[in-house]
Computed example of a mutant assay.
Amino acid sequence: MKLWIAVILVIIFVQADARKRQRAAHDDVRERHVSSHPNQVRVGANFEETMVAERPRGRKTSPARDGATPVPRNPCDKVRCKAGSECSLDANNLPNCVCIRECPDGLSVDDAVCGSDNRTYASECDLKRTKCLGKAKKSQRRKMKSLKIRYLGPCKTFTPCRKKELREYPNRMRVWLKNIFLQMYDTPLSEGGLTDKQRHYGRKVYSERERLQEFEQGADHELMEKEFRKFYHIYKYPVHWKFADLDRRPKDKKLSKKELGPLRAPLIPMEHCTKVFFKRADKNRDGKISLEEWGTALGLEAGDIDASLLV
């Protein structure tokens, strides 16, 4: 029992001595600091308050790591600029958004894009930079405001649409719509495939797919027309499906020139005839294609054009 008491007393003595030594060291540091900074010590202030008070004010710094010198934060770190522009510091070290000075070099032809102005740009960065620079000029502001990517790859040179091609356009477009729909049917929704409702309405197209021909580009026009008449009930839904797919902003059951733009992409058959074809399809000359005008132009009977199929 006496041994335990002795051990406890020794521990208490050691702890008290350690606190005494720590307090003495703290006071020694404080005296040295006061002697070297006599004008910075406030009456009644303790050492910690004095040290906080004398910290310099200025640009925020990032926390130091492993004893390294704190790194000043870049004012641009939290600035978000619009497409085609980047953050840059002015003479007063303040952040401003300016047009991208230079896009990456060493790009291949695969990076090229075709703009809505039918001009080929080296990359998406190059197009957005051009748009930014153009918007700064009053004479080009309106034109550049609508500049966007029409499709990936260099711009194609469209040949004039011949009368024969214009007559064949509905058949070739219907075959293409049917083929694309079948491809989308097997694609998961997470990868851009069809919704459950679209699959439901298009189930007949899928179930009869083995009886339908794919028709390679340049296939006989008469054969395509014959198949359309034979499987008219199957071709009907893909025509509605594509209209709904294009009708997005706004969803008003009318297709604007902007919404018809994707039909002029390189993969679309006879894309050089798209503009002429739908210009003729616009019977009321309002600059938009209604569901009725769309369906009629692609060969559907008036009674088979059904807005309830737009899902």
Score class of each variant (00 low, 15 high):
residue 255 L to I: 07
residue 79 V to Y: 09
residue 293 E to C: 05
residue 283 K to A: 08
residue 298 L to A: 08
residue 295 G to P: 05
residue 14 V to Y: 02
residue 243 F to K: 02
residue 9 L to A: 13
residue 250 P to K: 09
residue 171 N to S: 15
residue 202 G to R: 00
residue 138 K to I: 12
residue 127 L to F: 02
residue 154 P to S: 07
residue 298 L to S: 03
residue 145 K to M: 04
residue 195 T to N: 04
residue 120 T to C: 01
residue 52 V to H: 04
residue 118 N to A: 09
residue 121 Y to G: 08
residue 273 C to P: 10
residue 155 C to P: 02
residue 82 K to R: 12
residue 104 P to E: 11
residue 100 I to Q: 15
residue 192 G to W: 14
residue 236 K to W: 00
residue 55 R to P: 08
residue 237 Y to E: 05
residue 203 R to C: 09
residue 216 E to T: 11
residue 204 K to P: 02
residue 280 R to D: 14
residue 276 V to S: 13
residue 1 M to I: 15
residue 19 R to I: 10
residue 82 K to S: 12
residue 126 D to F: 08
residue 275 K to P: 05
residue 190 S to E: 13
residue 56 P to I: 07
residue 62 S to N: 13
residue 255 L to S: 04
residue 58 G to C: 04
residue 117 D to E: 08
residue 297 A to C: 09
residue 50 T to V: 15
residue 203 R to A: 07
residue 91 A to V: 14
residue 292 E to D: 07
residue 269 P to C: 08
residue 105 D to L: 12
residue 139 S to D: 13
residue 223 L to I: 12
residue 10 V to H: 03
residue 251 K to P: 05
residue 206 Y to E: 00
residue 162 R to P: 05
residue 53 A to F: 06
residue 101 R to A: 15
residue 42 R to Q: 15
residue 49 E to Y: 13
residue 271 E to M: 10
residue 13 F to I: 09
residue 236 K to L: 06
residue 93 N to E: 09
residue 171 N to T: 11
residue 283 K to Q: 12
residue 201 Y to D: 10
residue 300 L to A: 07
residue 139 S to P: 13
residue 301 E to K: 15
residue 55 R to N: 06
residue 55 R to W: 12
residue 217 Q to F: 14
residue 227 E to T: 06
residue 305 I to Y: 09
residue 10 V to F: 02
residue 99 C to S: 01
residue 129 R to K: 12
residue 264 R to V: 12
residue 307 A to F: 04
residue 188 P to W: 04
residue 183 Q to G: 14
residue 65 R to Q: 14
residue 105 D to P: 02
residue 145 K to H: 10
residue 15 Q to W: 01
residue 126 D to C: 02
residue 90 D to L: 06
residue 190 S to H: 07
residue 200 H to L: 12
residue 164 K to D: 08
residue 9 L to D: 05
residue 236 K to T: 15
residue 209 R to G: 02
residue 9 L to H: 04
residue 89 L to T: 02
residue 149 I to C: 00
residue 58 G to M: 00
residue 282 D to R: 01
residue 290 S to Y: 05
residue 107 L to M: 09
residue 138 K to S: 10
residue 307 A to L: 04
residue 280 R to Q: 14
residue 107 L to K: 08
residue 223 L to W: 11
residue 116 S to L: 08
residue 193 G to Q: 07
residue 195 T to A: 00
residue 274 T to I: 03
residue 42 R to A: 10
residue 275 K to I: 01
residue 106 G to H: 08
residue 61 T to A: 12
residue 262 P to N: 02
residue 204 K to I: 12
residue 53 A to L: 11
residue 149 I to T: 05
residue 269 P to H: 00
residue 246 L to P: 05
residue 161 C to K: 09
residue 207 S to C: 11
residue 17 D to T: 15
residue 37 H to Y: 06
residue 24 A to L: 15
residue 122 A to D: 05
residue 176 W to Q: 06
